[in-house]
Design a protein around this nucleic acid. Structure first.
Lengths: 344, 344
DNA sequence: GTGCTGTTGGAAACCGGTTTTCCGCGCTAC
DNA sequence: GTAGCGCGGAAAACCGGTTTCCAACAGCAC
């Protein structure tokens, strides 16, 4: 098991391995790929495997793809690299992909840079075997492509109704658990800072919020849609706090929105959590260092990424597409931004 | 210029284009690639281009790579996807790459997930034409690979001395301008929250800090190294504030450290900026929404990414590697976290 | 000894491009 | 009249794998 020698310079090809142990490249190829239809003496097989390791043989990805085999690469489309939440999904996906011998090609869906073209290129140039679509833009050019039908793909944390390819978490439960956390602290007037209505996760979180509120006999009407940004959260918080009766707690759809909301509350002279409690969807290390440290709902993002890879690779291996629901439930991470309802 | 029809299902190959206009695939290939050694009637060339567009022809990436041409893909190794600063470098790189007909393959350098193996795989499987190395880990397995010499590559925002492949910004000036900003507000006791000493950018920023401090006749000794995290910034700030005389201003190496520092100051009961001013390297939208909004040093990150791509593509086209310094200077973005020095 | 069968491995086609070589034709120059 | 040349394009080799089909040989039963 010693380190093999780098043959310095020239690439080692399959035929080199084959020649090195006196077989032809077809036998070498099938031995290395574990072709079950190949009958071969165990000694020969071992010789081939040893030679491959010894020479540091790496099959040429292009040649493999060309010969009809898979590229062993997947493309992952994400909406926004600067949102650290996605980095956890990406990490989960990359990890699982690597375990299964695949590479992940990451594309950020910035329409201004022609990201959908880039993504389509990866498909149409035959660079990838499958697609993980985590971007929620509903009008994506890719979705209209005829070629999409032919290619294994899944939708991650978004819903294409009826596609049978949705990999998701329990978003409704995330809202529900946040509401129950606040309700247990005595809050009855709870406001929701929701996301843009055209984005699926925002809609489901909102529905989960309304259902849980109604289930507790509370008014579910205190909602505002806003962009997933600090500015959006700030504006939305101002709107909600201007209502009468004013909510005593806010539940925000992203950490960015929550930071904006905290900022707005600070400017309005309201104390957190003495006057208003704040909970955010998404948990990140940053939450510990905000003023005050922010109570959040932690989601199983690593698992989501891994499950998405599994789902698409299952399709590649011939399984029929099927929706996947991550069983791990959202959990509230209690920090200092939530407290008992103020006594008027 | 109408939309071409998706031929639904089968891939359009070069030979299809060629047949469609009565030439052989060799002519079609050379016409489409603008081979100057091909003499061809203008009408024929136009027919070929039109047919390619009409049929929606996309060359198969694997076949191209195999035939000795380039893969038209670059790999970009970054240390940490959850750090939004890198997303700007990535964005700059992807944008420029796409302009020049290339695709960027992103790899996050998480050693636990075997990221260096992944990166090496991309190289050794012939998936990429060049490498952008933005990870600062000095012991990277890849750096020892003999194959690296053969492959165009650059180091982004780090320094491999003597490699002649460094693409960087003026990190020393970033520190210097931060110091001058504070000095102009009357601060003379300025503390530096630096990064791990083994990371190149941290060292250069620190040197820039010391030089500028010395140049102004101030004591440059108020430095602490800490991890690039909120926790690191928090600890470092406590250490610096415990010194006597205590600094009246802090300059932090990352936004995360600055957030940790703000938190520590808050816990210590110190007001920002009345008691202590804070400046951070790296500018992000988030800075506007911290309490107080954080003064930062904005770096030309998009340009850095773009320049790195240009440098590596220049190498691909045969140019000799050369260091690149981004000419755009760091600028201080003044927000509320810096103010005049407190009068004792 | 011959035919059958199972084992072991070889030969060749093929994937879809790129690149080099070569060929036929019409024109000019001698 | 023909050698030479430039133009326009065809033919074929090649890249490095995968996969299908087939051949050699051994052992066995008859």
């Amino acid at each position: 098991m010693g380190d093999h020698v780098e043959p310095a310079g020239e690439r080692v090809r399959l035929v080199d391995v084959a020649l090195a142990c006196g077989v032809t490249k077809s036998v070498a190829s099938r031995a290395l790929n574990g072709d079950p239809s190949l009958t071969i003496r165990p000694a020969t097989r071992l010789r081939i495997l040893a030679a491959a390791r010894e020479l540091g043989y790496r099959p040429h990805a292009g040649a493999r793809a060309l010969a009809g085999a898979r590229t062993r690469a997947l493309a992952l489309l994400i909406p926004d690299l600067s949102n650290p939440v996605y980095s956890r999904i990406v990490r989960g996906a990359c990890r699982r992909a690597r375990e299964r011998g695949y590479v992940v090609l990451l594309v950020e869906d910035t329409p201004a840079d022609g990201a959908d073209e880039t993504f389509a290129d990866l498909v149409e140039e035959g660079r990838v075997d499958g697609l993980l679509i985590a971007s929620a833009r509903p009008d994506h050019r890719l979705l209209a492509s005829a070629r999409l039908d032919r290619l294994p793909h899944v939708f991650v944390n978004r819903e294409m109704p009826g596609s049978g390819r949705n990999v998701g978490m329990d978003l409704a439960e995330a809202s529900a658990t946040a509401v129950r956390h606040l309700y247990a602290l005595g809050h009855t007037g709870i406001g929701l800072v929701s996301g843009p209505a055209e984005l699926y996760p925002a809609r489901v979180r909102e529905q989960g919020f309304r259902d849980q509120m109604t289930g507790l006999g509370l008014d579910p009407g205190c909602c505002v849609s806003a962009p997933f940004s600090e500015e959006g959260g700030s504006q939305a918080a101002r709107h909600l706090l201007a209502r009468r009766p004013a909510p005593t707690a806010l539940y925000c759809g992203t950490l960015g929105q929550a930071i904006g909301a905290l900022h707005a509350l600070h400017v309005l002279g309201l104390r957190v959590p003495e006057d208003v409690s704040v909970v955010s969807y998404d948990d990140l290390p940053l939450a510990d260092y905000l003023s005050p440290p922010l109570t959040t709902v932690a989601m199983p993002l690593l698992e989501l990424g891994a499950a998405a890879v599994d789902a698409v690779l299952d399709q590649l291996e011939g399984a029929a597409p099927h929706d996947v629901a991550i069983p791990t439930l959202p959990v509230v991470v209690t920090r200092a931004s939530t407290g008992r309802v103020p006594t008027r």
